[in-house]
Amino acid sequence: MTASLTPETVALSSPSSKLRIKDILATLPRECFQKDRKKAWATVATSIAMVGLGYWAIAVSPWFLLPVAWAFTGTALTGFFVIAHDCGHRSFAKRKWVNDWVGHIFMAPLIYPFHCWRLLHDKHHNHTNKMDVDNAWQPFRPELYDSMNLGQQVGYRFMRGRFWWIGSILHWALVHFRLENYNPRDHKKVKVSIAVVVAFAAIAFPTLILTTGVWGFVKFWLLPWMVYHFWMSTFTIVHHTLPDIQFREPEEWDEAQAQLFGTVHCEYPGWVEFLCHHINVHIPHHLSTAIPSYNLRMAHESLQQTWGSQLQEHRFSWRLMQQITDICHLYHPDYAYQSFKDHDESK
């Protein structure tokens, strides 16, 4: 295939064909890649307004409406992360310093160090679904799982099962604050980002506790933060995990196949899509991180015209999460995944 590939000729290809990312991108409208300052800052205004509305709701709601207020506020805070996510990919603004400042500001309330996340997240994009290299929801090899102690096995079972929603919290706590996870040349940036969130926590948390008490800290920060991590865990596991999406050994891995056919487009309820700036229109984002979040739907509609039913498209539901958490446990070279039940019975 050549760079002059057209949607009509690509549509005749099958997922087993040899594709190149640049050929797929050539089928997308050029407008998909264009940054729009007004649209970018409109997402900022929207998220600030919605988070503010959420905290107002928490402050005035009677106890029986607090769960609704927490769900709304935590989801709106996920929109903060999506803005920083665009900044991390340099698709928010043309100037690097603007991306860095906005990214730090919007991740600070989430206690997420911006450069730490950005550097590790880039690795996920460069090696999506590549076994032993991808760092996002990679399934453990059975032999690695068997070598773990009981406590580690139980923890892994929880994270890959019905407690998938704690996965993002564990990833945040265990990975992002360790200097050894980063190239020495990036240590200065990493330290700056860690310092930003430590400073935010050192000021905001004591102030919140002194003015509203421990319950105020739980009510206004901890529970919305946990809702945010629920969506982070859910979004990220669904993005690349289904019983028929295969992680590949490095020597067999193909970039275009992984990004186009190993990435899931999932439709969530409209209010979630709105508050989270449509980040779950995820296939075009994995083809090019240069596409801003507000252009993802335009890009996806173009991919639908070209690839149709070959794309992984689903609607969020409890049934979908059951399918993932009941089956997608351990790596299998032929059948994508082996469930814990099948693994235990095979021993």
Results as ranks from 00 to 15, higher is better:
39 K>S: 14
39 K>T: 14
40 A>W: 12
41 W>I: 06
42 A>P: 11
43 T>K: 14
44 V>M: 12
45 A>H: 11
45 A>E: 10
46 T>C: 05
46 T>L: 09
46 T>V: 06
47 S>I: 05
48 I>P: 04
49 A>C: 13
49 A>M: 13
49 A>E: 08
50 M>P: 07
50 M>E: 06
50 M>Q: 10
51 V>P: 03
52 G>M: 14
52 G>S: 15
54 G>I: 11
55 Y>L: 14
55 Y>F: 14
56 W>S: 09
56 W>L: 15
57 A>E: 05
57 A>Q: 04
58 I>E: 06
58 I>K: 09
59 A>P: 09
60 V>C: 10
60 V>N: 12
61 S>C: 08
62 P>K: 02
62 P>M: 02
63 W>Q: 09
65 L>K: 03
65 L>W: 10
65 L>F: 12
66 L>R: 15
66 L>T: 08
66 L>P: 08
66 L>I: 06
68 V>I: 15
68 V>K: 09
68 V>N: 07
68 V>C: 13
68 V>L: 15
68 V>R: 08
69 A>I: 01
69 A>H: 09
70 W>I: 08
71 A>Q: 10
72 F>P: 09
73 T>H: 01
73 T>S: 01
74 G>K: 02
75 T>A: 09
76 A>Q: 11
77 L>R: 01
80 F>L: 04
80 F>S: 06
81 F>I: 01
81 F>G: 00
83 I>Y: 07
83 I>A: 10
83 I>L: 11
85 H>I: 01
86 D>Q: 01
86 D>E: 15
87 C>E: 05
87 C>P: 02
88 G>E: 00
88 G>K: 00
88 G>S: 07
89 H>F: 00
89 H>M: 00
89 H>T: 00
90 R>C: 04
90 R>S: 00
91 S>H: 06
93 A>C: 07
94 K>Y: 09
95 R>D: 12
95 R>S: 13
95 R>A: 12
96 K>I: 07
96 K>Q: 11
97 W>A: 02
98 V>E: 05
98 V>Y: 02
98 V>N: 02
99 N>R: 05
100 D>L: 00
101 W>K: 04
102 V>R: 03
102 V>I: 13
102 V>F: 04
103 G>Q: 02
104 H>N: 04
104 H>V: 02
104 H>L: 13
105 I>P: 01
106 F>H: 00
106 F>V: 10
107 M>W: 01
109 P>S: 01
109 P>K: 02
